[in-house]
Amino acid sequence: MSETSITLPESLTIHQIEGHLGDLRMAFQADADTLNLEASSIEAIDTSGLQLLLALIKQAQSQNKTIQWITPSEQLTTSATKLGLTEKLMLS
């Protein structure tokens, strides 16, 4: 079983997503069974950022990859909770 770690950026808002999109897509397509998402540095995330994460996680799951969150930031968990995405993002 292989693993890869993906460090998420400090800001995943509509204004910064385009700059991170390519790198995140490539990271999520890594040839690994488990993706460890390091999310402690996320300070700003909006609906667009949550949608991006949801789409990338769903794509990884369709490829039978396991998602593991490593120290998700309070901002991430609070935003996901407010939008009812905690379970879909596998944060619970």
Results as ranks from 00 to 15, higher is better:
L24Y: 03
Q68E: 12
D23I: 09
L37A: 01
Q61A: 09
D46T: 03
M1D: 11
E18V: 09
T81E: 14
S48N: 13
E38P: 00
Q63Y: 15
I67D: 02
T78W: 08
A30G: 07
A60T: 08
E74C: 10
I17R: 07
F28P: 02
I45T: 06
L83W: 02
A32K: 10
N36V: 13
I14T: 10
S62I: 10
L54F: 09
I67R: 06
H15P: 07
S41N: 14
S79M: 14
A30D: 07
L37T: 03
T71D: 13
T78D: 10
S41Y: 08
E87C: 10
I45W: 04
T13N: 08
A60V: 04
D46M: 05
Q51W: 04
L76D: 03
L89D: 02
S92H: 11
T86S: 12
E18T: 11
M90W: 07
T71S: 12
A55N: 11
G49M: 05
S40P: 08
Q68D: 01
D31T: 05
E87D: 13
P9Q: 00
L54Q: 09
I70D: 00
E74Q: 14
M26N: 13
L8C: 06
L35E: 01
I17M: 01
F28T: 00
Q63L: 15
P72D: 00
T4R: 03
L50V: 03
T78A: 08
N64K: 15
A32Q: 08
L54N: 08
R25M: 11
